[in-house]
Simulated scan of single mutants.
Amino acid sequence: MSAQARARREQVRFAAGEMFAVGASDRQVAEQFRVSRMSANRCHRAFDESGTDALASKGPGGRGTS
């Protein structure tokens, strides 16, 4: 995934976090951002556990070069 795509997804997660903060449901977030309810729920759990810090991009995925 490109850096631009990661940044876009991060923005969506932050916007979803704002919705969760004011009481939006997983279903409302999923519909708003056209993502699965499972993805919305995963984001919601992360937000509930660690706030917006949990929604930040962790960088490119994939296998490390250890």
Rank of each mutant, 00 (worst) to 15 (best):
A54L: 01
S36L: 03
C43D: 04
E31I: 09
R13M: 05
G23S: 04
R42D: 13
H44Q: 13
R45D: 08
K58T: 04
Q4Y: 08
G17W: 00
S66G: 14
M19G: 06
F33D: 09
S39D: 10
A16R: 10
R63M: 14
A16I: 14
R34E: 13
E10H: 12
S25W: 00
A30P: 01
D48E: 13
A40Q: 07
D48R: 14
A15F: 02
Q4H: 09
G62K: 12
M1P: 08
V12D: 08
A21S: 07
S57R: 06
S2R: 11
A7K: 15
R13L: 05
A24E: 07
G23R: 02
M38V: 13
E49F: 05
S50G: 04
A46W: 07
F14E: 15
M19A: 14
A56D: 02
R27Y: 00
R63C: 10
S66L: 15
L55S: 11
A54G: 05
Q11D: 15
G62P: 08
A56I: 03
A21I: 01
T52R: 11
V35Y: 03
R9T: 04
V35A: 14
T52V: 00
D26M: 11
V29F: 04
A16H: 07
V35Q: 12
G23C: 02
R13S: 14
Q4R: 13
N41E: 05
E10V: 00
D48K: 10
D53V: 06
T65F: 12
A54M: 01
A7G: 12
H44D: 12
A54I: 05
S57D: 09
A56H: 07
S39T: 15
K58S: 15
L55N: 10
D48W: 05
R6F: 11
S57E: 07
R6G: 05
G61R: 15
G59R: 11
S57I: 00
A15T: 02
R37D: 06
S36K: 14
R42S: 06
M1G: 08
R42P: 01
R42K: 10
Q32L: 13
V22E: 09
G59P: 01
S66A: 10
T65G: 11
G64K: 13
N41H: 13
A15Y: 01
R9H: 13
A40C: 13
S66V: 12
F14Q: 09
R8Q: 09
G61K: 14
Q32F: 06
R42F: 08
R13F: 02
E31M: 15
E10L: 00
D48Y: 03
A54W: 03
A15G: 12
G23H: 02
R8A: 07
G51M: 02
N41R: 14
S50I: 04
V29L: 06
A5E: 11
V29P: 03
F33H: 10
E31L: 07
S36N: 06
S36A: 09
M1Q: 14
F47I: 04
Q11N: 15
R6D: 09
V22L: 08
A40P: 03
A24P: 01
R45E: 07
R8S: 06
G62M: 06
P60R: 13
M1F: 10
S66D: 10
F20P: 04
R13E: 05
Q11F: 10
H44Y: 12
